[in-house]
Design a protein around this nucleic acid. Sequence first.
DNA 1: ATTCCGAATTCTGAATTCAGAGTTCAATAC
DNA 2: GTATTGAACTCTGAATTCAGAATTCGGAAT
Lengths: 224, 224
Amino acid sequence: MKLIQTQPSLTQQVYDVIADEICDGALPAGAHLVQEQLAERLGVSRQPVQQAMALLKADGMVEEIGRRGLQVTPLDLDFVRHHYDIRAALDGLAARMAATRCRDGKAFGRKLAERGGEVLRLGETAVRNGAVGDQVRHDAAFHDLIYRASGNPLLARAAEPHWRFLRRAMGDVLRHAELPREIWRQHAEILDAIVAGEPSRAEELAIDHDLRAAKTLKAALSEK
Amino acid sequence: MKLIQTQPSLTQQVYDVIADEICDGALPAGAHLVQEQLAERLGVSRQPVQQAMALLKADGMVEEIGRRGLQVTPLDLDFVRHHYDIRAALDGLAARMAATRCRDGKAFGRKLAERGGEVLRLGETAVRNGAVGDQVRHDAAFHDLIYRASGNPLLARAAEPHWRFLRRAMGDVLRHAELPREIWRQHAEILDAIVAGEPSRAEELAIDHDLRAAKTLKAALSEK
DNA sequence: ATTCCGAATTCTGAATTCAGAGTTCAATAC
DNA sequence: GTATTGAACTCTGAATTCAGAATTCGGAAT
């Protein structure tokens, strides 16, 4: 029997709407946000908006501008590298742990190979179709799969703020460019190393992948 | 001229009070929290309490118990290792980056050696005095120094949720035991490697330190 | 004794209002 | 023209109230 999903709170819904608009660029850095206006636009009272703003503030996505509303935080180019450095550490850990689990259990590795393969195929389909939004989604899905495969339930959550920032940065770029095709080759290599049960190799590839992505993204942002 | 500090919001103050009580064990795992009661106890209206609870919930420190208030989240022993694994990755990164900076700039290393040395001395004094609370504080201060020395402004923030959890776990243990004295020797070794500008060695020592701490803490928690 | 159902209760989320913090603007003085 | 000051304005944080979700309890039926 399927669990009955309770309606998320208005606060949660407001948070999700605003967070998504920030991450996909509809609300660009510096965009001015006023609680009363957001409340009107979303058809709710100000209180859930206020609460959502507090959460978005805690997440670094918005900041106060001194009793004159809030603004979407700037996308600081220097922070691209900072976020990727942390992601590299976390992604490396995830890959290593997942590979260790595959080394110790063949059935686990087979299942992961299968699921990973699906995501890679979806990613490559999106590349063929030039569906950029889909590419980002499958990129995230691939990494999420590895976090979950690591056996550490905290990894996905730990990586989340960095993904959020980078999703914003990518969103900025992807109006003009695509994800490099080579990331899918890199994903495949990471998956292979994990499934083969090679922790050090998997970690190295994951870190390398992120550090390359950092360079690429930073270069693309500098051109704008 | 000294900056004038504005009073933190009531929400922030409520958050800080509750978070501190959770972290130092005054509010143990499972403690029942009701907004109205907290509001009375703290002499504020329910609204800032509600907001603080939303933030504490987002931070995983409290959880809902189904329209009957909230409770402090359980301290799950399995999570000690999970948190330390992530901390090891982050601390390793911090140490490596700090060491790289020391290798590239001697003045930076000298300054760090000085500051680090101070913290280590404070830690050792606390050990001699059997001042357990101070030991935890200086432990955190040491690591915070390394995060800042890394040059990545996001590292301290990234490590925060893990420190929160581990501070709670340590608080649980420290009613009965002390931090092992060897952690100060380990800290000194990490600092030496960083100041000497040896990134790989610094990273290794930092990771090793955390993995040992994980074992020690987990064993201590199992005995209770 | 166990199960079911409706009522009572507890508590939260949301709406509304009030107070006031901090910014902006307009008038005045130099 | 520039600087200063006080008033007006914008917006937030907090207090209060209302609505209702979800749990608990007690009584009735089996």
